[in-house]
Design a protein around this nucleic acid. Structure first.
Lengths: 349, 349
DNA sequence: TCTTCGCACTCGCTTGCCCGGAGTGCTAAA
DNA sequence: TTTAGCACTCCGGGCAAGCGAGTGCGAAGA
C-alpha cells in the first residue's frame, strides 16, 4: 500500500526516523518516554515501546543492553538514509563561503585538492579526504625530451591539470638535441589532448620508431608515460582527524588507532572510495558496509567531483555512524561543485 | 671538582640517571625503595630518599603528589640527555635492515623521504617526520621553456634532486619556439649547477634581457624560478601517529588532539624543527623547550640529513618526554645516514 | 483489535566508603 | 653522614547501595 516505506507502515517509519534523528543529535540511546516527550508523536510511550520492539525484531534498532534505549542498526541507518531523511541544501551564504575559501588556494592541482579537503574537514567536523584526479582520466598536453648528454636525457610530461612528471633515461645510441626535439614534436602532434590512458604503449612505440629511434628510446618514452599515468594514482589529501576525538564513540582509544593507521596507509583509504567510481552519484556506506570490522561503527559519505562530464575524483567524509547524513551530503556536494569549478583554473589549455 | 656533573656530586648524578632510566623503562613514578631494590646503589633507601629530596629541591625531579615516587622534570631529562646517558650505536644488523628497507623506495625524492619517515616511525615506535630538502639548498639543473602559442608557454625547472616545477606564462609580445629554446640554453649555460637561492632575480633578468627579451619574459622567468625555490618548502612526510596511542600519557584525549592538529598544520611542524637548521648536529628538545604548553609533555629528537656537506633536511621523532633518548638518537642518525646516501640516487647529474 | 496504564524488573552508572600499598619526611641512633 | 623505625599521606581498586531510565507484560479501556 501507499503508506509503506521499505516494508514499514507509516507510523513505524516515522518512529524509526525520529529515533535515528534523535540519536544522531544526542548520541544517547533513545527511550520511548524521552521520545514521546520531545516529539509530538500523538501516541503514548507504551505504544512507542511496542513499535520499537517491532523495529528491533525487524533489525532496524538495537539495544546496547536491556533497560537501555534503542540505537539504530546498520539497517536502520540505511533505511533512514535511503528513504526517511529529508535531503538538505546549502544556503546561499554557505555556498558563498565555500567558494571564497576555495579561492585562497593558488591555481595548482595539489593546492586546490588539499584546500578542499581542509575546508570539508572543518565544515563537516569530521575526517575528510579528497582523492587527486586519477591521472588516467587526465589528458596528455605536452611532452618534452631534454638532452643532457649523448646518451641520456630527461623526459617531462605535462598533463591537462598542469601536473608535470619527469623521468631520467639512458640510451644505447647517441642522440642529438635536435633528435629529441623532433621526437617531442611528434609526440605532441600525435597525442595532444588524448586521455592519458589512451596513450598506449603500442602507439607510443609506433611514433617513436617512425622518428627513426630504436628500442632503447621506445623504452624511455614508455617509462615516461607510465610514470605520468601512475604518478598521482592514490594521491589523497586528508584533513580533520582531530575532529574525531570530539565524538564520544572515540573515547575508546583502540578505534582511533585503526583510523590513524588507515590514514597513513593511503592504499586502504583509496580502496574505501574505489568502488564509488563505478556509480556517478553520491554514495553512503554505513558501518559493516565498509567491509572491515575495525571500521564497523563508522560511516563514509562519498561524492564525486567532475571535470566536464567525467568524474575524476572523490570527496569523502569519514565519521561515526551517528553522523548528520543529510547535512554532510550537502556539504560534500557543495564542496565538490566548487572544486570542480576550480579545476578549470588549473587546466592547461 | 672532578666528581661533579652539572653541579651534582657523583652520587646524586648517578641516582638521577637511575631514576630517569627507570622511569623511562616503566612509566611509573619511581620511589626510593623500588630503586634500591632494583639497582645496586650501595646505600639504603633512606639515603636515596634524602638525595631525592635534594634533587627535587634542585629542580631535577618532581613529585606528582605527596606519597608518590619521583618523576624527572624538564631539567632532569636535560641533564640526563646532556651528561648522564650513555650514547647508543646501532648494531650492524639493524643498520643493514634500515638500508634494506630504504631500498624498497623508488629513486624519487618524495618516495625516499616518505619511506624514511615510515621506517623511522615504525622503528622508533613514535611519530616520526622528515622534511623534504629545502629547495633553496637544492641546485638548479635544467630549465626548459616550452612554446604553446605565440604569447604563452610553460616553464619547467628541474632541480638537482630531479624535482620538476612548472609554471604557465603569458607574454605581451610574440615569440617563436626557437626564441624559447635560445633562452632555455642561455639559462642552462649560466646557472647550471648553482644553488637555487643563488639564482637571484637580478641575474635572471640580466640573462633574459641579453637574449633580447622584454620585461614580460623577465617576469615569466622570475616566476618560474620563484616557484622552484618555494615549491616544496615546508613539505613534510609524517608517519607513525598511531604509536602515540600506545603511550599511557595519551590516555587523555585532549593531548592527542593537539598533536593531530599540529600534524595537519605542516607549518607548525616545520617551525618545530626550523631552528635545528642552525646547528648541524643532532638536537633534543624536551617538554617546555618546545615552546608550547600543548606540547609540554613531549620531546623532540631532531637529526639532520645531508647532501654532501650541506644539511638539507631534518628527521625528527616526536614522542612522550619519557622516551628512550639514546636509542632514538641512534635510530634517527642511522636513518639519516641511509637517507643521505640514497639522496645521491635521485641526484640529476 | 489497537492503545494505554500501571507495575515489577533489569541493568548500568554514579557515589561513597574502605582498605592496601607505596612512598615520604622526620627523628633518633649508629 | 648514614641508617632504621615510624607515623602519615595519598592514590587506586574493589565493593555495595541507590538512582534513574528503560523495558516487557498483563489488564483495562476505546
Amino acid at each position: 500500500m501507499e503508506n509503506e516505506v521499505d516494508g514499514l507502515d507509516k507510523r513505524k517509519a516515522y518512529i524509526l526516523a525520529t529515533v535515528v534523528y534523535e540519536y544522531i543529535a544526542t548520541g544517547e540511546p533513545v527511550g520511548s518516554q524521552a521520545l514521546t516527550q520531545k516529539y509530538n508523536l500523538g501516541v503514548s510511550s507504551a505504544t512507542v515501546r511496542n513499535e520499537m520492539a517491532d523495529l528491533e525484531a525487524g533489525g532496524y534498532l538495537e539495544q546496547p543492553h536491556t533497560s537501555a534505549g534503542r540505537v539504530p542498526s546498520d539497517a536502520g541507518y540505511r533505511t533512514y538514509v535511503d528513504a526517511l531523511m529529508s535531503p538538505e541544501e546549502l544556503g546561499a551564504d554557505e555556498r558563498r563561503r565555500i567558494r571564497d575559501e576555495m579561492r585562497d588556494a593558488r591555481a595548482q592541482l595539489d593546492e586546490i585538492v588539499e584546500q578542499s579537503s581542509r575546508l570539508l574537514g572543518r565544515l563537516a567536523g569530521n575526517l575528510a579526504f579528497v582523492t587527486k584526479p586519477q591521472s588516467e582520466t587526465q589528458s596528455f598536453r605536452y611532452a618534452q625530451l631534454i638532452w643532457i648528454g649523448e646518451r641520456s636525457g630527461i623526459a617531462i610530461i605535462v598533463t591537462s591539470f598542469g601536473v608535470a612528471s619527469q623521468s631520467l633515461f639512458e640510451l644505447r645510441n647517441d642522440v642529438t638535441p635536435d633528435d629529441l626535439t623532433r621526437l617531442s614534436n611528434a609526440l605532441n602532434a600525435t597525442f595532444a589532448g588524448r586521455l592519458l590512458r589512451d596513450c598506449d604503449d603500442r602507439s607510443l612505440a609506433a611514433v617513436t620508431k617512425q622518428c627513426g629511434f630504436g628500442d632503447d628510446m621506445v623504452g624511455a618514452v614508455r617509462t615516461a608515460f607510465t610514470g605520468a599515468r601512475t604518478q598521482e594514482q592514490p594521491g589523497i589529501a586528508a584533513s580533520g582527524a582531530q575532529h574525531l576525538l570530539d565524538q564520544p564513540e572515540f573515547r575508546d582509544v583502540r578505534k582511533l588507532r585503526s583510523i590513524l593507521r588507515i590514514l597513513e596507509e593511503q592504499r586502504t583509504l583509496y580502496d574505501l572510495v574505489a568502488d564509488a567510481f563505478d556509480s556517478p552519484a553520491a554514495s553512503v556506506k554505513i558501518g559493516h558496509e565498509l567491509g572491515s570490522e575495525e571500521l564497523a561503527d563508522l560511516s563514509l559519505v562519498t561524492v564525486p567531483y567532475r571535470f566536464g562530464e567525467r568524474a575524476v575524483g572523490m570527496l569523502s567524509i569519514l565519521g561515526p555512524r551517528r553522523m548528520p547524513y543529510a547535512r554532510l551530503l550537502a556539504l560534500a556536494s557543495g564542496t565538490a561543485e566548487t572544486l570542480s569549478e576550480r579545476l578549470h583554473d588549473v587546466e592547461v589549455r
